[in-house]
């Protein structure tokens, strides 16, 4: 059973043995002395002199530095970014959701100076516990009010906490994913460093012209 194949296999595994590991450590990664010094922004000697305790920890393998995950801006994640100002309560998202987990209750309400009459949201609940993040709701939203988020940590001990309500959506940090929102990609928007708090800055997918709006809301009434 001895041939050249086995030794070649051993060489391949040995070659991989000396390779740098591909593991991505999360949420932080262990570093040695050099890594800790680099993180602190000084050379190792200076680091040992300046911060002896930290350097001992680093040598003992206990020092960690946080890791920023490399994710695509299109990542369809948690924490939907929702701009209530833009929502007309048309419930397209609820209709397009394959699982029917978006619950919308609306009342006829406010009048937007620009866009005219709209509906006020009473309830806008997304049951994230059942959500599969397909993004069809975001794709369906004609006014770009709903965006996918970029986070992925939302573990709780109680299922009810997985229902995201309107208040939570409004309060959440607005880091919209560029999934189905090409305007973010055109502006080279990075959802991992920037936030878009104002719905005007979030850009419009297909914004009707002023004439159209006037025709629709004033002339034809």
């Amino acid at each position: 059973m001895i041939g050249l194949g086995l030794p070649r296999g051993f060489l391949v595994t040995l070659k991989n043995f000396v390779r740098a590991p591909v593991t991505v450590q999360y949420p932080d990664r262990h570093v040695g002395l050099f890594g800790a010094a680099k993180e602190a922004g000084m050379n190792p000697f200076r680091f040992v002199v300046k911060r002896p305790v930290d350097s001992i920890k680093a040598i003992a393998g206990l020092a960690t530095v946080p890791v920023a995950l490399e994710q695509s801006p299109r990542f369809r994640g948690n924490e939907f970014t929702f701009y209530e100002d833009r929502c007309t309560a048309c419930a397209s998202c609820a209709k397009y959701c394959p699982l029917g987990i978006i619950e919308i209750v609306s009342v006829p309400g406010k009048i937007d100076a620009q866009e005219g009459e709209s509906y006020k949201l009473e309830v806008f609940d997304i049951d994230i516990g059942r959500c599969m993040f397909c993004g069809l709701c975001v794709e369906a939203c004609p006014y770009d009010a709903l965006h996918m988020g970029t986070k992925f940590e939302r573990s709780t001990y109680v299922r009810d906490e997985l229902i995201v309500t309107l208040d939570e959506l409004n309060a959440a940090e607005k880091k919209p994913s560029s999934f189905y929102r090409p305007q973010f990609e055109e502006n080279a928007f990075d959802p991992y460093t920037e936030t878009v708090d104002d719905h005007y800055d979030a850009g419009r997918h297909e914004r009707p012209s002023d004439e159209d709006l006037k025709k629709k809301w004033v002339d034809e009434r």
């Binding site: 059973m1 041939g3 050249l4 194949g5 086995l6 070649r8 296999g9 391949v12």
Partner: peptide, 12 residues
């Protein structure tokens, strides 16, 4: 392929 295609154990 280097690892497996000629590997005698995989072969046998």
């Amino acid at each position: 392929e280097e690892y497996l295609s000629g590997n005698e154990i995989v072969f046998s």
